[in-house]
Design a protein around this nucleic acid. Structure first.
Length: 506
RNA sequence: GGUCCGUUAGUGUAGCGGUUAUCACGCUUCCCUUUCACGGAAGAGAUCAUGGGUUCGAUUCCCAUACGGACUACCA
């Protein structure tokens, strides 16, 4: 097994969680770094949890981020189909093979019987209350029932599952690329159901069979799978198949460290947990995505890549290509990672500034359009406004939201700034400045505007800081923003005078 | 409860037996600005979870404890 083949195997039960995106990314980076293949396999063996649109959502989200599969349900490939529901017919023969080898068995226990067993074991304070090497002797299965009765039950279409016959005393040992050797005693493991009564395999069986058939070389997945990895290892041994290498990634945790990153905590702390907007068709709710919240794909990739991995040097900014060049599983950490959206914002700020001005101008124009503003804005003007706004933007929307006053006179004035800066003194200055502009300003261009404003302030004997905020307030309604003279140049003489007039009426 | 995994500043991290314990985000202060931001400079912030070993010497190796997390379904 010398070619690297990895897979991302999501279950279409809802919107793709950002932790899942990171798992997909790490798989993708690992594949590309090693000139291998990255595939997507949809694990939809649970019909009851299937959510329409979820698969499409997952693909769209990964496409947006540039995590493109070499083989997938949409793209096909030499091991198609890539949806487990479509592979259903092939699993049963493998399960039966294990039954024949006495490595698995039929179990006819009803949900009620199972429940009774559980209660009984709990009352007996069993250390491991499960269907296992010890308890299976008391249950209704092909190990305890006479052979002809088993045949009869099967012939009568009595519902059954197939369970893995986990040895009572053995040790399962495997090497995890991130965690090192992991040892587990089979006594602590249970007889996992591998075929459900509806004829579908469970995750454990389908996953192992498909990974084998699809020639997967490395299984890179979240740490939540670590406890069941021994079962999977045992399954490979049962089939006599060569095992892929395992790498269990540390989990993304809530900012307070309380549990796996959750939708609920995301809402509580105010950050998205899904890559794209997700419309939950069942709950009829909308969960905001990183994209719609204004995060650029470069930021999401860069941010996610560094959550649990680093290149070993102190580089923070990575393009996808650089990540591919530097990624290695050896440098993935072991501990869970608390999610900190601040860092994502910083990345966003960085990548936003890297965007070409034309693209930024598009953000501005699109945003203004939603406000029915800026219809006469030229590309040139849009670009120069963006250049001016660039340094203080974190999200694309900031370009128009923080520049609204360039297109619309302020309707209200920031209260705090008013009480601080609006007084007799500044009012008098504003009055004289108004007169000055009205009569003297020949060229309406920011250099000369600035020059004249400065000389006027000097002549008045006042301090810049005393009067400038008032002018700004009059023009923009807020206490902070880009260069005043630039603002004046953009909105023009007529509008400037109008806004000063409005202010003077206050 | 059981099994497994983890633990370096608020957060993400470097470290791989001897360091003033690295870098980034965030925070504070100063400079630059009319202001905000950017940029520049400086700073605060870590008993390297705790206790035992091993060693001349442990953040680094071993053990225990504490704390945290994952799993514990005919879900993945």
């Amino acid at each position: 097994m010398d070619t690297v083949r990895v897979r991302f195997a999501p279950s279409p039960t809802g919107g793709l969680h950002i932790g899942g995106v990171r798992t997909a990314l790490y798989n993708y980076l690992f594949a590309k770094k090693n000139n291998g293949k990255f595939l997507i396999r949809i694990e939809d063996t649970d019909q009851t949890r299937y959510v329409p649109g979820a698969e499409e959502y997952i693909i769209n989200a990964l496409n947006w981020l540039g995590i493109i599969a070499d083989e997938s349900p949409e793209k096909g490939g030499k091991h198609a189909p890539y949806r487990q529901s479509e592979r259903k017919p092939m699993y049963m023969q493998y399960a039966k093979e294990l039954v024949e080898k006495d490595l698995a068995y039929y179990a006819f226990d009803t949900t009620k019987e199972l429940e009774e067993m559980r209660i009984k074991l709990e009352q007996a304070k069993s250390k491991n209350p499960s269907y296992n090497a010890i308890t299976r002797g008391n249950m209704r299965n092909s190990l305890t029932l006479p052979e002809d009765e088993v045949k009869k039950l099967l012939a009568e279409d009595e519902p059954y599952v197939i369970r893995l016959k986990m040895p009572r005393k053995d040790e399962i040992r495997f090497q995890d690329l991130i965690r090192g050797w992991v040892n587990v005693h089979t006594a602590t493991l249970d007889d996992k159901v591998i075929m459900k009564s509806d004829g579908m395999p469970t995750y454990h069986l389908a996953n192992v069979i498909d990974d084998h058939l699809m020639e997967i070389s490395h299984v890179i997945r979240g740490e939540e799978w670590l406890p069941s990895a021994p079962t999977h290892v045992f399954l490979y041994q049962c089939f006599g198949w060569e095992m892929p290498q395992f790498a269990h990634l540390p989990l993304l945790l809530n900012p307070d460290g309380q549990g796996k990153l959750s939708k609920r905590k995301g809402a509580e702390y105010g950050f998205p947990v899904f890559p794209l907007d997700w419309h939950d068709p069942e709950k009829n709710e909308l969960v905001q995505g990183f994209k719609e919240a204004g995060y650029l794909k470069e930021s999401v990739i860069n941010f996610l890549a560094l959550l649990g991995w680093n290149a070993g040097d102190h580089q923070e900014i990575f393009s996808m290509e650089e990540l591919i060049g530097k990624f290695s599983l050896e440098r993935v950490g072991k501990a869970g990672i608390k999610f900190d959206i601040n860092k994502a914002k910083w990345f966003n700020q960085h990548y936003l500034r890297q965007k070409p001005d034309t693209e930024l101008a598009q953000y501005l124009k699109d945003g203004l359009k939603t406000q029915d503003l800026g219809e006469n804005l030229s590309e040139e003007q849009a670009i120069s406004i963006c250049q001016m706004m660039k340094e203080r933007a974190t999200f694309p929307d900031d370009f128009w939201k923080d520049a609204l006053y360039l297109f619309k006179a302020p309707t209200q004035y920031n209260e705090q700034a008013m009480t601080k800066n609006w007084n007799e003194e500044s009012k008098n200055f504003l009055q004289s400045y108004y007169e000055f502009l009205k009569n003297n300003q020949a060229t309406w261009e920011h250099e000369s505007l600035k020059h004249d404003l400065h000389t006027l302030v000097e002549q008045s004997g006042l301090k810049m800081g005393k009067v400038m905020p008032a002018v700004r307030l009059a023009l923009s309604g807020v206490g902070a923003g880009p260069d005043l003279a630039m603002i004046m140049q953009i909105i023009g003489k007529e509008e400037t005078l109008k806004r000063l007039e409005n202010m003077l009426k206050k």
